[in-house]
């Protein structure tokens, strides 16, 4: 075989490998829809999405996932209220105020937060944060939407800090120099020049942090309390979409309505996280355009 054909063959083999991510993504869509789509016909898409009762094992069973969606949204928004201000100000501090020598040391430490397994966050939430909140608010149980929000917020921090920091540092130096030369203080330069320029990069980091929070499973399964009724408040136990799938899939017969409904939840979850990721991709592109000036 001459080298040209060999090169060509290698190129096509590598292309197949490169397509693997897309094939897996398509595979996930096929599996989810094949197993989960029938429930949308049986229940009706409106009743499934907006039904307020999730009693999958009752007779007759009811498969309304609005409580689960609401719980996921509640817990994720709660996490963001906590994680966005802390994450953003930390990233500003690391990227613009801290000396570079310390920064190189601090950044890996913060990335360690991302490395801690979610069960360990769950354990911490169950045994330390939960009882602590229970005492403070005088609750019957410490496993609530608030507990889950705080834990998810902590888990989203490294994503938000690390990506915002990248966005802030990739704002061209001349922007900063121009502002300082005009007599702006460092803070004025950050708040009026750097942050507005980096804003779409920061939005990317928040979207990805949200995606991580809404898709997180083990921690919410362990700390959110698990009540599948409509969430009545931040201090009540709730059950998210992810936790429902993880908790109930093991005990349901393959192919049953309940099984299909769990895959149906996964479809909804997948669409939500996919849209977060697409928005993140779009804002990321906008950011690069802005920074590179093209």
């Amino acid at each position: 075989m001459d080298w040209k054909t060999k090169e060509k063959i290698i190129k096509y083999i590598l292309l197949i490998f490169a397509m693997s991510s897309i094939m897996f993504l398509i595979g996930i869509v096929i599996v989810l829809f094949r197993e989960g789509l029938p429930i949308f016909y049986k229940i009706g898409i409106i009743d499934f999405l907006f039904g307020q009762e999730w009693y999958p094992t009752y007779d007759p069973a009811s498969f309304g996932i609005l409580p689960l969606i609401s719980a996921s949204v509640l817990v994720t928004l709660g996490a963001m209220i906590f994680a966005v201000p802390i994450g953003l100000s930390t990233s500003v501090f690391i990227s613009y105020i801290m000396p570079k020598s310390i920064k190189n040391f601090i950044k890996p430490i913060i990335e360690l937060l991302a490395g801690i397994p979610s069960v360990i966050y769950g354990l911490f939430g169950m045994k330390i944060l939960g009882p602590f909140l229970k005492d403070i608010f005088g609750l019957p149980t410490g496993l609530t939407a608030l507990t889950a929000s705080i834990m998810l917020g902590i888990m989203a921090l490294p994503t938000i800090i690390s990506l915002s920091e990248d966005a802030i540092t990739s704002v061209p130096k001349k922007f900063r120099d121009a502002s300082l030369a005009l007599g702006g203080t460092r803070w004025e330069t950050i708040s009026k020049v750097i942050l507005p320029t980096a804003s779409s990069g920061i939005v990317t980091s928040i979207m990805l942090g949200m995606g991580r929070a809404i898709g997180e499973t083990m921690t919410v399964l362990m700390v959110a309390g698990g009540a599948s009724a409509m969430p009545e408040g931040i201090l009540k136990p709730v059950r998210t979409m992810t936790a429902t799938i993880a908790a109930e899939m093991g005990e349901t017969p393959v192919g049953s309505n309940h099984y299909q409904a769990l895959f149906g939840i996964a479809i909804v979850l997948f669409i939500i996280t996919l849209s977060f990721n697409i928005i993140a991709d779009l804002t990321r592109k906008r950011f690069y355009k802005k920074v590179s000036g093209k």
Partner: peptide, 9 residues
């Protein structure tokens, strides 16, 4: 960005 539980399914 796919949630880990979806990988499980």
């Amino acid at each position: 960005g796919v949630p880990s539980v979806v990988f499980g399914l």
